[in-house]
Design a protein around this nucleic acid. Structure first.
Lengths: 133, 133
DNA sequence: TATTGACCTTCCTGTTGCTGGAAACTTCAT
DNA sequence: ATGAAGTTTCCAGCAACAGGAAGGTCAATA
C-alpha cells in the first residue's frame, strides 16, 4: 500500500502522513524503489491519529495516546486523564469565546453600519468609550 | 517614552511592540541613542491594537481597523462588516467546540479511569466501537 | 571613576501542524 | 517512446509572537 492509497483509505493528506513519519508517529517500510509501503497496522495507526486529531488532541497528546493504545498493560486512568484535561481546555476555550461573542455582538448591534464615519466599534477599540461589561 | 514605559503603560510586552513595528503597525521615532521614542499617538495606536487583539481580531483585521480608525471619512459599514465577519467565525468556532465537548464528555464519562487497561476512549479512537452521535 | 544593574538594540531560532511548491525519480498506460 | 500520474526529498511559509544571545546605553552608587 503506497502513500496515495492509504491517504485515500484513511482520509488524511499524503503530506500529513509524511509529516507524521517525520515526527516519528509511524514508521512505514520502504519498497525497493524507495516508496513508502504501509501495512495494515500502519493504516490503523494513521486512522487512530486522524480520529484523535479530529477530536482536537495535540500531536503530543496523540503520541501519548498511541503509546497507551499499544501498551496492553496500560491503566485506563492514564487515558482518561489526558482526555479530561483536553476537555477542560476546550471548556475553557468555549467560555472565553462566549465572552468575546457577547462583547462583539453588542458592538456590532450598536454600530449602525452605514456610510457615516461615527462608529461605536472604533470608539470601543480606541478606548474613548465605556466598554460593554 | 521608551519601550519599557509604553509597555507598562499599555500592558503589551516589549517583544510584541517591536513585532508590531516590524510589520509596520506603528512607526515610533528614534532617539539619538537608537532607542525607540514613542509619543502619545503611538501609545494610543498600541492601545487600540491591544484592545483589538484581545477581542480576537487577526493582525490583518487590526491593520484594516486601524486604518479605518485613522480615516476621518470612513463608513461605519466597513467597520461593522469586519466585526460581523469576525463574530461569525467565533460563533462557528464555538459550535465546533461544543460538538467536540459533547463527544469528549461522553467518552470521559464512559471511561472508568482505573488501573485496568479496558478503555472506551481508546476503543473509540481506534475505531473499534460505535462512535458517540 | 569604575562598576554594577537595568535598560535597550538587533538577529536568529522555535513554537503548532501542517501546506505548497520545486526538482527529480518511478510506474503505468498507451 | 512518451506522457501522465504517482512518488521522493528538501525548502519555504503561515500566525503571532516568545526566548535567548551578544552587545550598546544609561543612571546610580561605591
Amino acid at each position: 500500500m503506497n502513500i496515495g492509497e492509504v491517504s485515500r483509505a484513511i482520509g488524511l493528506p499524503a503530506k500529513t502522513i509524511r509529516y507524521y513519519e517525520d515526527i516519528g508517529l509511524v514508521q512505514p517500510a520502504r519498497g525497493a524503489n524507495g516508496y513508502r509501503d504501509f501495512n495494515e497496522q500502519d493504516a490503523h495507526k494513521l486512522a487512530f491519529l486522524g480520529r484523535s486529531r479530529s477530536l482536537g488532541f495535540s500531536i503530543d497528546d496523540c503520541r501519548t495516546l498511541l503509546s497507551l493504545y499499544e501498551d496492553r498493560g496500560r491503566a485506563s486512568a492514564d487515558v482518561k486523564a489526558i482526555a479530561a484535561e483536553h476537555l477542560q481546555r476546550i471548556t475553557l476555550k468555549i467560555d472565553e469565546l462566549k465572552e468575546l461573542k457577547i462583547t462583539l455582538e453588542e458592538l456590532v448591534t450598536r454600530c449602525h453600519g452605514d456610510d457615516r464615519p461615527d462608529c461605536p466599534i472604533l470608539n470601543d477599540l480606541s478606548g474613548h468609550e465605556a466598554r460593554p461589561s
